[in-house]
Nucleic acid binder design. Structure first.
Lengths: 252, 252
DNA sequence: AAATGCAGTTCTTTCGAAAATTTAGTCTTG
DNA sequence: CAAGACTAAATTTTCGAAAGAACTGCATTT
């Protein structure tokens, strides 16, 4: 097995082969939770997971542990794990926290960013634009593969903005919140007819980038609006699971 | 700290006995890392930990996994774990991130806080004051037990300020950063002669509380200064391990 | 009927050993 | 003597089964 450099568990890390089964399990589970293949709120029985993925208990447990600390999985002491439920409150909390973190990171990047940083932003924006164009050219429907390619570019663009903030913690938190909010974004993308959006997301990105390169505080405002608008769109269009009474278990 | 910092993890956790060995291992390891009993930078060999704590591999691994995502432990794919090193950069990053998070949480608490919230702050402040007084009365030297009692009150006070922010994520992050920064604070407290401090920490706390109850933005400023002053004090007084060349391993 | 108590079952958690990989040491070779 | 190759030891990772706790359904009691 080819060893991957053990970087922090960032969203883009998945590229190389995972060095351990635990890592592999983590990646698979995370992908499936984010994509909704493992339904929100449902319990994650170890035996079922073993059959589904072919990992044995130890790596699975390890993966679930990690996912728990990223808020994708819940666990109760002797009752096992479950997929973290989706809710308006969680989404909004995640969105606002993301805005807090990324605003600060963006400010710092704008303060200290160098030419390479700027160049990377322009490049990422371009790559994202190309992807959008290609997609609308090739097919009307957005399928899972397109969606992931798209999402990767989208991630790279947003990350490039804050990349020069100088704080490993902020970048880490941003990554984590990106993944969390992905759970809410992705379901709304699949099956959507390309170009249907009322919003001009591309224009929003352009606005953010331009203001960022101008080192203008407008960038922060645009970014926040961008995220809030996305959250609002999702909140409106999503079929929210009403918090089931039966799922609520009093601790002991 | 009576309550585990990562308050979300387990429903029934808290002060009581940990329900599983994994949880117990987590608590022990965390305590020992924060207190410096497990030296920063040193590798954590599973066999050694098994002998020291009496837990077998599975619970230990689980605990280490959790600690890794809280930045107290590092791990590399097939080379095991080590205690996360201490450094000026990490401390400052943690401090600034903490300020970012708690400032926002404090603002929200001040915006929405009710009478109970205010009462809890006053109570926590009082408890902290009593503890400080008792300590300086009983003995000159600060020992480990005093230190923990003190730290618990201190934690409760700071937490009471932001308790009403309404965001589970912010509270969680604040808890995590509290623990992280504890690694830097605690070593500076042990052995210190009580009342020696040039700073009047009690007065700083009073200032923060007063401004908070007035719902004044000053509270945020005072809080930030409080944290920065602490960081500066530590930065000056601590014997920093110089980043050893030999510890650096290139990942292939 | 509601509450209580009691098997049997399901599921999580833990253990100890086996497998896989890295690390250290030794020897060889150019 | 440095670089490489091989071997042995140390260490992590993984497995599968055993142990322990929670859940289910049913009978019993109030």
């Amino acid at each position: 097995m080819a060893t991957t450099a053990g970087g922090r568990r960032i969203a883009s890390e998945g590229a190389g082969e995972p060095a351990t089964l635990g890592e592999a399990a983590y990646q698979h589970l995370r992908t499936d939770i984010v994509a909704g293949a493992l339904e929100a709120g449902k319990p994650l029985r170890l035996e079922a997971l073993r059959q589904r993925y072919g990992f044995s208990f130890s790596p699975l447990r390890e993966a679930l542990m990690r996912l728990q600390s990223e808020r994708l999985v819940l666990s109760t002491a002797l009752r096992g794990f479950s997929v973290a439920p989706l809710s308006r409150d969680e989404m909004n909390d995640a969105t606002e926290t993301r805005i807090l973190i990324e605003s600060e990171a963006l400010r710092r990047s704008m303060r200290d960013g160098d030419d390479d940083w700027e160049a990377a932003i322009v490049a990422a924006f371009h790559a994202l634009s190309l992807q959008v164009e290609r997609q609308s050219r090739i097919s009307d429907e957005v399928d899972a593969v397109d969606m992931h390619a798209m999402d990767e570019r989208h991630y790279q663009f947003h990350r490039s903005l804050i990349a020069h903030c100088g704080s490993p913690r902020l970048l880490d938190l941003a990554d984590q919140l990106y993944v969390e909010t992905q759970r809410y974004r992705l379901p709304c993308l699949v099956g959507r007819v390309a170009g249907t959006q009322a919003r001009d997301v591309a224009a929003e990105h352009q606005q953010i980038m331009d203001a960022t390169l101008r080192r203008s505080e407008d960038a922060v405002r645009h970014l926040a609006e961008h995220y809030r608008r996305t959250a609002a769109t999702i909140e409106a269009s999503m079929a929210w699971p009403l918090p089931a009474q039966s799922d609520i278990r009093l601790p002991r």
